[in-house]
Design a binder for these strands. Structure first.
Lengths: 212, 212
DNA sequence: ACCTGAACACCGTTCAAGT
DNA sequence: ACCTGAACACCGTTCAAGT
């Protein structure tokens, strides 16, 4: 497990092959199949390993809102540090790591006093939003797998994307061109948390509506 | 392009290979590379082909809210009919189909009078939520690629998942076990639209707060 | 200009044979 | 009980050679 995570962190998603892992462990590729069902299990276990720590750390917050925000923050850090986690999370919703996220978010949503029949929708909204952005950040990281100065490379990449967007037809793409202006400067983490707050605000406004 | 979509629809994501496509077109696999850069382009073009129609159809709504909901509805139909679209959308955020979604949602959010500095966050929240659920539905469809009676298979699958969740430790997984009770009966489309409404409600409550 | 199809450099997975 | 590593059945992509 640790060897797998090491390979994923050092060389990216695509670098984890049974051959590479076997070489790293100085064994035959077939040997791994004695301990692990298939590649899916390998990735799911590695992902859960990391998500579990995030959830445990975040649970120590004071208010339910704080805990949810801490989970989001922790998840952001995890994906930032291990981009393959984002890809794996968004690829397979039935893996244990996703269930763990669901339980963690769900218990906080319960604590916020959301009526039971609305809880599933609220939790799914939060979860889907997180998984959606997780996939996007992972895709971004896939473009520049390993680099000493990632912040710099990222900004150059966003600048190039923005420049390409600015070349689009203004009549057909007014909004995208407007976004292009702020794209290189925008803060991913801030935007991630803003989305969480937006969903929580929607939850509250619906709550008030239901019980005036 | 049409041949590629045909293969994807009939046999699922994994069935689209250059060899299969070449056989379908009665040509050599190398010939396709004369017209198409690589597999990524092939999938991105096929996806945009379908998303473009969704967005064009949805744009005919009356109010901005209706248009956004129509886009979500159309996207749901598209993913329901072509599950590979969901997978492809959630995998690559820089493809044209995603930009098309962004522009479509963005113009409606602008029309709703959201202040410019908040627009990017709102649109990202809606978009990420959509892409997140898209990936989840696509993963669900990957489990039972082709079947005459998908609704039946789906329900059986969800029933099996719910049963497995019910076996989890009640002390550690109270929320997931609660969800398990309603999981087999829940309506994916309803939940998708509920999430959209939640984000829109959050947007409105923040708008009111900003300009009292 | 466009097509052919063998060849290359990989995959995940299996399995007879070993210890 | 656990490991070895060749073999199988695939991939995406390239490219010399054709028309």
């Amino acid at each position: 497990m640790e060897a797998a995570i090491e390979i994923l962190d050092k060389n990216g998603e695509d670098a984890l092959t049974f051959r590479a892992l076997a070489a790293h462990l100085e064994t035959g590729s077939g040997a791994i199949y004695w301990h692990v069902a298939d590649k899916d299990y390998l990735l799911a276990a590695a992902t859960d390993h990391i998500v579990a720590r995030v959830m445990a750390d975040a649970a120590r917050g004071s208010s339910p809102r704080d805990v949810i925000r801490a989970m989001a923050n922790g998840l952001f850090d995890a994906i930032d540090g291990h981009p393959w986690v984002g890809g794996q999370l968004s690829r397979n919703p039935w893996q244990y790591a996703v269930l763990r996220l669901m339980e963690g978010i769900g218990s906080q949503v319960q604590a916020l006093g959301v009526p039971e029949r609305a809880q599933f929708n609220v939790v799914t909204a939060l979860l889907s939003f997180m998984l959606g952005l997780a996939g996007q950040y992972a895709a971004g990281a896939r473009l520049f797998p390993r680099d000493a100065d990632r912040a710099e490379v990222r900004k150059a990449h966003l600048g190039a994307v923005a420049a390409k967007w600015m070349e689009l037809d203004p009549a057909e793409h007014p909004f995208v061109r407007q976004v292009a202006k702020v794209l290189p400067e925008h803060d991913d983490r801030e935007q991630f948390l803003a989305g969480i707050d937006l969903i929580l605000a929607g939850m509250e406004s619906i709550q008030k509506l239901g019980a005036p």
